Amino acid sequence: MQPVDNLHVLAFEPLTPPRALRERYPITEAAAQTVYETRESIKRIVRREDQRLLAVVGPCSIHDTGAALEYAGRLARLAGEMRDRIVIVMRAYFEKPRTTVGWRGLINDPHLDGSFDMNEGLRRARELLLRINDIGLPTATEMLDPISPQYITDLISLTAIGARTVESQTHRALASGLSMPVGYKNSTDGNVQVAVNAFLSARRAHSFLGIDQDGQSCVVRTTGNPDGMIILRGSSAGPNYDAATVVRTEQAMEAAGLLPAIMIDCSHANAGGDHTRQPHVWREVLRDHIASRNAVIGMMVESYLYEGKQPILADRSRLRYGVSVTDACVGWETTERMLIEAYEALKG
């Protein structure tokens, strides 16, 4: 008999069950309080019951947990000082969708060498999230894989479904079972309606294939997730953070029976792929929001210790500390200045 199955599979490598990793790095009372309080705050913000601005700032992706912790320490200080007007959440992105190929993030390839030591990647991600939440700073991430959430979601306060996966039935079903609010990005071609449809879908109950805490394959049955927002991230046609697009997005959400809640991604196509334009987008969106009190409830910024980006080098020791290896980020000084400007502008 000729072989007909798994013809292109090299190996099946067992993963540590989620329960084992959670027992190794159990959530602490302090971290649980951070997650609970922030989720509740975000729910009130998207329901328009809390007028504070939601600011999601941090690296495009995390590849160095030491640098990420230093960044978190700085951001936690600002978050504490500004909590009366701004809810600051740190971007902690561990999985990267690729248009073709490239480094797929800390969970998939923690050694940045194509070895795909995912057990180690999951361990590093959970340990880092625990340490960040322990200092009182909440975290946000993008959910890309339907298996990895079981390892880390108890330490996440906000998540996003990305522009490349917002039409995916798998990701809509996944979002329906998540325990935190979800942001749905417009597609890469600028289609906002698909994000609205994703939100509508995720509000409903779903059943899909997944794993439980013991790593057992199972049917996951969900109740639906009522809390979310649309994220405008620009498109192949250009930026979409302008007032007219915001109004059209509000109308599309209202027509679908959704309470309008919109986040503006200051990076990606809204900045034309130029990280130095993020402060410009930030200021324009903030100005329009204050002037019109529109449905914009928050903004997202790609930020790290130092500005720019760098290639992944064969000699890892030559990587520059605190510099992104994916999208270029604004540096800490710029980030701090942007947040201070917003805090002062929101005084009235």
Rank of each mutant, 00 (worst) to 15 (best):
Y304F: 15
F199Q: 04
L209W: 09
G331K: 10
R47C: 07
R39I: 05
A271V: 01
S317W: 04
A295E: 09
Y184N: 02
Y343N: 09
G322H: 03
D154C: 01
Q2K: 14
R123P: 02
P146Y: 02
Y321I: 03
K185T: 12
T170R: 12
L7G: 05
P110T: 09
Q51G: 13
L7C: 10
C60I: 07
L122Q: 00
R48I: 02
H280K: 10
I42F: 02
L15K: 05
V281G: 04
M299R: 06
V246A: 12
Y306M: 06
L15I: 04
V247P: 06
P110F: 01
D5W: 10
V4P: 11
P97V: 06
T153K: 09
E49V: 07
Y304W: 10
T222M: 12
Y151T: 05
Y93H: 02
F199K: 08
I156R: 00
L144S: 06
E127T: 07
R19W: 11
L7F: 02
Q51R: 15
V219G: 13
T28V: 10
S236V: 09
I161S: 02
V281Q: 04
G58S: 01
Y151N: 08
G331E: 03
G272L: 09
L319R: 06
F12W: 12
I88V: 15
A202G: 09
L319D: 03
L112W: 07
D145E: 04
Y25Q: 01
M180N: 00
A195M: 13
G348V: 13
Q310W: 03
A261G: 04
R164W: 03
G162K: 01
D265C: 07
V196I: 11
F116C: 06
P97D: 09
T249G: 12
A205N: 12
N133A: 07
R52Y: 05
S157M: 05
P311N: 06
G238A: 13
Y36G: 03
D64H: 08
V87W: 02
T28E: 14
K309T: 12
P17Q: 10
S61I: 00
T334A: 07
L128V: 05
R337Q: 10
V9S: 10
D64S: 07
G228M: 07
R124Q: 13
L339H: 11
Y36R: 11
S236D: 10
G272E: 12
R74G: 14
F12Y: 15
T326C: 04
T222Q: 14
Y306L: 08
P17A: 14
G272D: 13
K185E: 11
D274V: 12
L178N: 00
E336D: 14
P226R: 12
L53P: 00
A160Y: 15
L130G: 00
S176I: 02
N6L: 07
Q33T: 15
T65K: 11
G105V: 11
A202D: 06
M180S: 02
C60E: 08
P26T: 14
E127W: 08
C60H: 04
M143L: 14
R44S: 05
I290M: 15
G272T: 09
N270S: 04
I262W: 06
L174M: 05
A31Y: 01
L129H: 01
T28H: 11
E167M: 06
L122G: 00
G80V: 01
L112I: 02
A68M: 08
P149C: 14
S201H: 11
Q216L: 13
T335E: 02
L112M: 15
P138I: 10
R293L: 14
R221M: 15
Q213N: 07
M180K: 00
A269Q: 03
S267K: 06
A205D: 04
